[in-house]
C-alpha cells in the first residue's frame, strides 16, 4: 500500500524523509498529471507521497544582502508580484501556463521535476541560482547545474529536500526570456532561451545564455561566456560565428509530439545570434 502523509511542520517532513522513501509533492501541477487515473479515482502513485504544500515556513522571499532567498514553496504568482525578484525570472513566470497554475506551481517543484523543458529551471541556470538542500541533521548548498543531471534526474537523495533557492544579486543592462511553445500562452516549450548581459562603456562585463529543451538538461556554457567578458560589444558581435560554433556540440534536441530536432536546433542558434546582435539595444 502506498502511504500518504501530510507533515505538520518542516521538521516533521525531514523526519519522514529520513525514515521512508517518499516522493515529495509540492504544488502537484506536474505529479498529479503524470500519475493521473480515471476521473473520480485517486491518482495512481507508485511511491509513498509526502504532501508538503501546506508547509507555510517554506513560503518566503527574503533579501539577505548579496542574495535573494526564496523559500521552496513560493509560488510563481508570488514571485511575479514581488519587487525584489529579477525581471528575467518574472518574464519567465508570466509565460508559465495560466494564472490557475501559477498560484500552485513552485520553483522547487520545477527543479525536482527536472524537465529539460522547464522554463523556471532555465532561468535559474541563467541567474546562477544556488539551492539549499536539507536532510535531517545536515544541509548543503549547490549550484543548480550540479543538482539537475538529466531528464527527471537530480542528485537529491531520498532523505533530501530543496528548502530554499538563492539568487545572487546581479544587475544586468539587458535580459531576455524567450520561449517558443505551440501557442502564445499555456504551452510547454519547444525551445526556450534566457539571456543576460551587462555592458559598461561599450565593454561586456557579464554575458550569460541558457537554452532549454534542446538537450537532456539546460545548456549554459560558462567557459564560452567568460571568454568574451572584457571584450567590446563589436568584438563579441564579430565573433558570433565562433560563439555559435561553441554551442554546436551541446545543442542536441529530439523529435517529439511538439516539434522536431531541425527546427529546435535552428531556432536555438537564431536565439543566440539574435541576443548577441541586439545585446546593446533595448527590446
Amino acid at each position: 500500500m502506498v502511504k500518504h502523509v501530510i507533515p505538520k511542520t518542516y521538521e516533521e517532513a525531514l523526519d519522514h524523509l529520513s525514515e521512508g522513501t517518499f516522493k515529495v509533492l509540492a504544488g502537484g501541477t506536474d505529479l498529479m498529471v503524470k500519475n493521473r487515473s480515471w476521473s473520480e479515482t485517486p491518482a495512481r502513485f507508485k511511491q509513498d507521497i509526502l504532501y508538503i504544500h501546506n508547509l507555510e515556513e517554506l513560503r518566503y522571499i527574503e533579501d539577505r544582502g548579496d542574495y535573494l532567498a526564496i523559500g521552496a514553496l513560493t509560488d510563481y504568482e508570488t514571485l511575479l508580484r514581488h519587487e525584489a525578484v529579477p525581471q528575467v525570472l518574472k518574464d519567465c513566470m508570466l509565460e508559465i501556463a495560466g494564472p490557475g497554475i501559477r498560484k500552485v506551481g513552485t520553483l522547487a517543484g520545477n527543479i525536482g521535476n527536472a524537465s529539460p523543458a522547464a522554463d523556471g529551471v532555465l532561468t535559474l541556470y541563467l541567474l546562477d541560482a544556488k539551492l539549499v538542500i536539507e536532510q535531517k541533521g545536515s544541509a548543503r548548498e549547490a549550484l543548480i547545474d550540479d543538482v539537475i543531471v538529466g531528464p527527471g534526474k537530480t542528485t537529491l537523495s531520498n532523505e533530501e529536500i530543496i528548502k530554499e533557492i538563492r539568487l545572487p544579486k546581479t544587475r544586468f543592462t539587458k535580459t531576455r526570456f524567450l520561449k517558443v511553445g505551440g501557442r502564445k500562452a499555456d504551452a510547454i516549450s519547444k525551445v526556450a532561451f534566457a539571456g543576460a548581459v551587462t555592458i559598461e562603456d561599450g565593454v561586456v562585463k557579464d554575458l550569460r545564455m541558457a537554452l532549454g529543451a534542446i538537450n537532456v538538461t539546460v545548456v549554459r556554457l560558462r567557459d564560452v561566456e567568460k571568454r568574451h567578458i572584457g571584450e567590446t560589444i563589436s568584438a563579441v558581435q564579430d565573433n558570433i560565428v565562433s560563439i555559435k560554433n561553441a554551442y554546436v556540440p551541446h545543442i542536441k534536441p529530439i523529435d517529439d509530439q511538439r516539434s522536431n530536432r531541425v527546427y529546435r536546433k535552428r531556432v536555438a542558434f537564431n536565439m543566440i545570434e539574435d541576443f548577441i546582435t541586439t545585446m546593446h539595444t533595448q527590446d
Binding site: L25, G27, T29, M32, I49, V104
Partner: peptide
Amino acid sequence: WLVNSCLLPLAS
C-alpha cells in the same frame, strides 16, 4: 486565488 482543482490533491 484561482487554482485548477483537477491538479490539487485533496491533501493540499
